[in-house]
Nucleic acid binder design. Structure first.
Length: 826
DNA sequence: ATCTCCCGCCATATG
DNA sequence: CATATGGCGGGAGAT
């Protein structure tokens, strides 16, 4: 009972407290006083803590504190001891660390239960807190503000807040994620990275200018606050204006995590996005700095909440501070209609005449009317850039812009009022505080699961929250593939077991390296994959991240000479693609089973697939317009769809031959490809409610379509002919045989065997390691091999092709890029 | 030197 | 008007 507490108390509380006490009094802390007596001195706080929390909670809290802040605490402790023992000569200064916001936040949080029961409704009196914690008021505001942004507390009145604990977290995060998606943060991130890359690569090309201008700051610069039904901002006034950054900034910051694929966000990127990001580089030097400072503040409290943790991303340009999301995964918004009704996006009132409530939600995401739409600056800019790109490259019959626009309109609308709040679905409510204490338990165990989501054919045994795609263990994980030419990104949802394969093969990889290179999509793409493969949380672990340069020029004969020229690259692609596609088609038709590639993901034009435009997409699919519209690819199950792993595994997707050297397809060839007209298609599109089988089907279909798209066919990705004969329903759940997982990886060959639809396809992917482990990695940095399986040692792929040696394969071979970018923990 | 980020001035909002 | 809030950025400790 006391042991743990003591620990915590002694280590941090003691230190921190003592100092403040003395300082104000001008009495320099006396070494003698502090050291010995201290163990209990902090008792006051301790008592507070104890009284504040129920025994159960208390112990949990203690435990938790011990475990996660242990390092921190210990460190501090050590410092302290050091100080006390070592430099007696000097008043043991609390050392900056001991005053850190993070520590303070821990103390603050310790005072309240994570999941307060209805009965223990606790209020927070700032005066008390400041006094007890011995901090300046200002600091408390920092903490409270971000807690507020997560709806863990809400303000009642001056000096008064209510503590909600983490009950609202699931909803909040979900809402944030959604908003983040709508904000197109993914694209923005891509943009930034891309720009970044181009910058260093080609500092003064005009291209940069364009890029810069094309990138939209969008409404993000506008203030907006995402609210939850039960937690509206009290004091309309507060809601009213000024709540400028912190709160909002915090939300946006979180959004970035929820939205980005490897859930890692570097401060730099975050800052840029959070700033309007319109101004040119140098102008905001100062602004940028400030932003970073703020982000650190926010990050500190988020860290205390254990929602994120600090990591370092090592890129070619050095080590950058970043944070990784470690909080609960957010459920996919499969049923977000309901959720939508529960969250509100608020923007600062523009004109007094309009009620703030009305303003809420209207501003940020206009739902109706093109005029509104037009106002969406980010979109506009995005569109602009896309068009530009397009024009430059190749004109396409259909402008994705338009499509995205229209689609956009169909996006879920936010309610203008909170009136709908009562409409909160029961299951969602469950996780809420009001409902009760039983839930408390549940929540305590794992927030994500606290909010049960009716899953079609969910398997009871699933231990992981579905739909949540924790980098390390989800069944489906998104990967972003930038569409270099259009500026549109696509997401591929991969199954862990297949991830490596896909990544390797991913067209993005093949092409991107030269254009956006590792900086952009490729980066995240790979990282994602790595993410899963890698262990994490270890001491030497490392999250993974960006692949190094995907394919070095040396590795790719064809491109060799053009490595540095984008233009050339682009131009040359089509040709290669053309050839490829032809071959491919032939192969497909002949159903060559030997050396086929098993694509393992499906593409989703993120631009408009933010989420379920069910009707929209399905209709289009039905109409068979797929060939002309990106939208067609967004299936009902678009987004992160929780799908039992088995489903994915078993889906037998028509294989494509992989010809490493020419994975590129030309728009033309693609277009020429037979449009998918399978019966399957219809069936799948018809059902708006994704059921396992349809999901699988969709998955497959998208996958197919994905290839061309990912390949950067600028124009219209088309569904290709699908050599699938069986019905979706036939998908067998048989196996879960992902070779990777089962360690079936044979030597240098990766075999993918799928019993799906036809059960006759299998893919054998020869693995190869990058020719030379270039770039001496930082000692600390861990370079991981792509195919490194969780359990076993790295596979040492060899170039020698494989078994059935398809010429193609042997000729090219897939390269497994070494990661250049890693994430390391501190 | 760079990364972190504490401190507290001071403009605003609130009551 | 007195306070409560909370931008903001200097500048110093940590690495």
């Amino acid at each position: 009972l006391k042991t743990p507490l003591k620990q915590a108390a002694t280590s941090q509380l003691v230190l921190t407290e003592r100092q403040p006490d003395c300082q104000p009094l001008t009495t320099p802390p006396k070494p003698k006083e502090t050291p010995p007596a201290d163990p209990w001195t902090p008792t006051s706080n301790l008592k507070m803590l104890i009284s504040a929390a129920s025994p159960e909670i208390r112990s949990r809290e203690q435990r938790r504190q011990l475990s996660d802040s242990s390092s921190e605490v210990l460190q501090a402790k050590h410092c302290l001891q050091e100080h006390l023992l070592g430099d007696e000569y000097e008043k043991s200064q609390p050392s900056r660390k001991e005053k850190s916001l993070g520590l303070l936040c821990h103390k603050f949080l310790a005072r309240y239960p994570d999941y307060p029961s209805a009965s223990q409704k606790s209020y927070i009196c700032l005066d008390e807190v400041t006094e007890e914690l011995h901090v300046e008021r200002r600091r408390i505001y920092d903490i409270v503000n971000v807690l507020e942004s997560l709806h863990m507390v809400s303000r009642l009145a001056r000096n008064r807040y209510v503590w909600h604990g983490r009950h609202n977290l699931p909803q909040t995060l979900q809402a944030l994620k959604k908003v983040g998606e709508e904000n197109k943060y993914i694209q923005q991130i891509q943009m930034i990275k891309k720009r970044e890359y181009e910058h260093e690569f080609d500092p003064d090309s005009e291209r940069n200018e364009e890029m810069a201008s094309s990138f939209g700051s969008s409404e993000q610069s506008e203030m907006s606050f995402v609210e939850l039904p039960g937690v509206e901002f009290r004091a309309a006034s507060v809601n009213g204006r000024k709540y400028k950054s912190l709160r909002v900034m915090s939300q946006k910051f979180v959004m970035l995590f929820l939205v980005s694929t490897p859930q890692i966000v570097s401060l730099e990127v975050a800052a840029k996005i959070l700033i309007g990001e319109d101004q040119l580089e140098d102008l905001d030097k100062s602004k940028f700095k400030t932003k970073i400072r703020r982000l650190y503040d926010i990050a500190n409290v988020l860290s205390s909440l254990k929602l994120i943790k600090k990591v370092h991303v090592t890129e070619e340009r050095g080590r950058k501070p970043a944070f990784k999301w470690t909080g609960p995964e957010v459920l996919p918004n499969i049923q977000d209609t309901k959720l939508e009704a529960t969250s509100t996006v608020c923007s600062p009132p523009i004109s007094e005449s309009i009620s703030s409530k009305e303003q809420c939600s209207k501003t940020l995401f206009p739902s109706k009317g093109k005029q509104n739409f037009t106002r969406h600056s980010s979109l506009i800019k995005l569109v602009k850039s896309i068009e530009n790109d397009r024009r430059k490259i190749q004109s396409a019959p259909t402008s994705p812009v338009k499509i995205s626009a229209s689609t956009y309109q169909s996006l879920p609308v936010f309610p203008n009022t909170i009136a709908q709040f009562p409409a909160i679905p029961k299951h969602q409510l469950e996780g809420q505080s009001k409902t009760a204490e039983e839930m408390q338990m549940k929540c305590a165990l794992s927030s994500p699961e606290a909010v049960p989501k009716p899953e079609p054919s969910q398997q009871p045994a699933l231990s992981q929250p579905l739909g949540v795609c924790p980098a390390s263990h989800s069944s489906v994980s998104p990967v972003i593939l930038p569409h270099p030419q259009s500026g549109v990104s696509y997401a591929i949802y991969l199954h862990p077991s297949q991830a490596p394969t896909v990544t390797t093969y991913s067209p993005g990889f093949m092409l991107q390296p030269l254009t956006c290179a590792n900086v952009t999509g490729v980066k995240s793409n790979n990282s994602k994959v790595l993410n899963k493969i890698t262990t994490e949380e270890g001491d030497n672990q490392r999250a993974m991240d960006e692949p190094t340069k995907s394919l070095a020029s040396e590795e790719r004969p064809n491109m060799k000479s053009e490595t540095s020229s984008q233009g050339c690259l682009k131009r040359s692609q089509p040709l290669q693609e053309n050839n490829l596609i032809k071959r491919r088609r032939n192969d497909e038709e002949s159903l060559d089973t030997s050396s086929t590639f098993f694509p393992s993901g499906y593409l989703i034009p993120l631009t408009h697939c933010t989420h379920g435009n069910k009707a929209d997409s399905s209709n289009k699919e039905k109409a068979g317009v797929c060939s002309l519209q990106h939208t067609a690819y967004s299936s009902p199950i678009t987004g992160v769809i929780p799908m039992p792993a088995s489903e994915l595994k078993t889906v037998n997707i028509p294989a494509f031959h992989i010809t490493p050297l020419n994975i590129m397809l030309s728009p033309n060839s693609v277009a020429a490809a037979p449009v998918l007209s399978n019966s399957c298609l219809n069936s799948s599109s018809t059902s708006s409610a994704p059921n396992p089988s349809s999901s699988a089907l969709n998955f497959m279909l998208q996958h197919i379509g994905l290839i061309p798209a990912g390949v950067q066919v600028p124009a219209n990705p088309v569904l290709q002919h699908v050599p699938v004969s069986s019905q979706p329903e036939n998908i067998s759940h048989s196996s879960g045989n992902t070779n990777l997982q089962e360690g079936k990886v044979s030597k240098n060959t990766l075999q993918l065997d799928h019993g799906g639809l036809s059960g006759k396809y299998s893919a054998i992917i020869p693995l190869q390691q990058p020719s030379a482990p270039k770039e001496p990695q930082e000692p600390q940095a861990v370079t991981e091999n792509f195919f490194r399986t969780p359990g076993g040692p790295n596979t040492e792929p060899s170039l020698s092709a494989n078994s059935d040696g398809t010429e193609r394969i042997s000729q090219g071979t897939l390269y497994i890029p070494q990661r250049k970018l890693e994430v390391s923990e501190d």
